[in-house]
Design a protein around this nucleic acid. Structure first.
Lengths: 149, 149
DNA sequence: CGAGACCCTCAAGCTACTATAGGGTCAAGC
DNA sequence: GCTTGACCCTATAGTAGCTTGAGGGTCTCG
């Protein structure tokens, strides 16, 4: 099967497949005489596995680790559990940060009604005013929750 | 005031100030004979305003628009309201997507207990199994909520 | 043998920074 | 006057996960 077929079956772009290969998430396949990549059914499975993990917002680095772990059936799967736990924790922190952000923005939006002029726009006032004081903490925690580690 | 002082007062890195200037978020300041950037109190205010908007996770493009709008006091501030509304909507969608993701991951994590081997790890089973069926929709909506409009 | 669909590699673009390299400037102390 | 250290300058590359584009080769049908 050629790269276009593989990509169609997994629902990804052809370029994405090549990118995954470059990143070591997919193994480099055999090549035809003309240099075309040649895939089998196993590759469809692996790529779809990768896409499912990505749909859960896992990083490619985590997915690589997961694939490495999945390769050895005799190993204890505590590492898999730990990886998922850590990921879950990151998602949780990010959600809390977004919730705080939404509250902040809702409050900000309530400062200005339609029909006003910039000169007395409540939102800009609030933003400038807040700029003189201390910044809100929500984005710091959002940024902290972004760092994959 | 030199760039280091400005950066300290706004709580950002010196490189970030130069980056903002390059991106047109901050105006290019006057230079000393030696080529050093020279700032005034107004620049501290503007930079701190930018940082507050960033703490609300607004894009630099949005902040530029906001600054342009804020420049003309006589204009109606419906555009400001619309910008904040759109941003709020993105944050809201992102939070919903993250909530769904958290549920999905929680369910996945519950599939495997400690002490098992990879061969019968419930998480990997679930991930492979799900890979054969259709993927969950949570990341699609997350991705959709990422695209800044 | 030509057209269109497919494949290849390499490089750049996206966001908002951060970090590094390689160099110039300035003020204080000896 | 000279050194030391803190500061400044530009330019370039790296981060994550792709997407887009250039410039070219291959395959297959009619």
């Amino acid at each position: 099967m050629r790269i276009g077929d593989l990509a169609r079956q997994a629902g990804v772009d052809v370029q994405t497949v090549r990118y995954y290969e470059r990143e070591g998430v997919l193994e480099a396949p055999a090549r035809t005489a003309a240099g075309y990549r040649s895939y089998g059914a196993h590759d469809v499975e692996r790529l779809t596995f990768v896409r499912h993990c990505r749909s859960l917002d896992m990083s490619l680095a985590d997915i690589k680790r997961l694939l490495a772990l999945a390769g050895d059936a005799t190993v204890a799967c505590d590492d898999v559990n730990a990886l998922i736990d850590a990921h879950l924790e990151r998602i949780h922190a990010k959600r809390l940060a977004l919730e705080a952000l939404e509250v902040q923005l809702g409050a900000l939006r309530a400062q200005c009604s339609s029909g006003r002029r910039i000169a007395n726009c409540g939102i800009l006032e609030e933003l400038v005013h807040a700029a003189h004081g201390e910044a809100c903490a929500c984005h710091q925690s959002l940024a902290a929750s972004e760092e994959q580690g």
